[in-house]
Design a protein around this nucleic acid. Structure first.
Lengths: 186, 186
DNA sequence: CGCCGAGTTGAACTGAATCAAGAAACGTGG
DNA sequence: CCACGTTTCTTGATTCAGTTCAACTCGGCG
């Protein structure tokens, strides 16, 4: 029923009409591991669709590096506060593996949305789905113990535990690397 | 620059064209304090715009009543998971004061969006703003002490502390009523 | 009046952070 | 390809913020 799940763009790529429209505004790029896609303090003008590889959004809180979002194959990533509000972002985006991706500029995307209601409609459905996932994430982090947060992520995205270093998952889950290590070691 | 803030519908009501379109699908209602606008386990077909009064979204986690959203004058409220995904909601909505509100049905809203791109566009901007606020809320609750969460809410929405009972604010902030009371008593 | 839920206060307990030190993994240059 | 230094991960001991449990107070309302 719902064409979206998990911020996947499967629906977009599988719909010939949408895929064609988006192909007109996407450019392919390949970067190496540790490449910084976006730096905090600047306005983010790009939305990225990951083809292969994995990326994270993170920021600094009192010198501590805190990850707050991961995106892998067929998922999108951007510094959302900046992309939507057109102001400087507090977030950075870093690639955690060599990554192939499509780049879409903010202005091209807005122009596409304005060119036909069906694209605007797609945009609305997409952000709605992202919203739902964020509501779930709040539920997941609030009122759960460190062990429970670990278990929830493990059941939802087990592959992250293979691909992302422990300290980044720990910060994503709101716990110290020490606590993460102890939980992992059963 | 950004016409939205704080999920306020000021922009909607101040824009004659939008206001007129919405007036065609809104119905006025008045309810008493403690009225249940929506009950968990059912599909939520309505979006509410508060004219006066205040409401909360809450759910039960192991018998504990947890508030997760408040909406007062000029703000909207619904059980968002259900309203968007058209499935049974885990959330309830309760009025915390005698409340006047407008009711908009899901189907009327979708029809309005489809009737003209400008409404679809409005819908997208609105959910985008809600998304931004949710990202902020995650930042506010994760990696902050009970004292800090209290201070952040106090600086953002001091009026809540007058209008909502302590135990509901405590659950919203993810702490026990005891901890809330101790913080409040300096 | 006396009840009842809401709020306060105190004491004991506990999950997770902090601090510290050692082991393992990584990457960089010779 | 190995040696070295740096970063990441693990494990242990200690500390602390916040929960739990319990007793008491207050204010509204039948």
């Amino acid at each position: 029923m719902n064409p979206f799940s998990d911020q996947s763009v499967t629906f977009l790529l599988d719909n010939p009409e949408l895929a064609e429209a988006f192909q007109g505004i996407m450019t392919y790029q390949k970067y190496q591991k540790h490449h910084i896609l976006h730096e905090s303090g600047t306005i983010c003008n790009h939305l990225y669709i990951i083809i292969s590889g994995i990326a994270r959004v993170f920021y600094y809180k009192e010198d501590k590096d805190i990850s707050c979002h991961f995106a892998a194959e067929k998922e999108t990533i951007t510094t959302i506060d900046s992309f939507i509000q057109r102001k400087k972002s507090k977030y950075n985006i870093e690639l955690m593996e060599d990554t192939e991706l499509f780049i879409i500029s903010h202005s091209d995307l807005e122009n596409l949305f304005q060119s036909h209601p069906k694209y605007e409609h797609f945009g609305r459905l997409y952000i709605q789905q992202a919203y739902i996932e964020l509501v779930e994430r709040i539920d997941d982090i609030q009122l759960h113990t460190a062990q429970e947060r670990y278990d929830i992520l493990m059941s939802k995205k087990p592959e992250l535990f293979q691909r992302i270093s422990a300290k980044h998952i720990a910060s994503f889950l709101g716990m110290t690397p020490e606590t993460f290590s102890r939980i992992r070691g059963k």
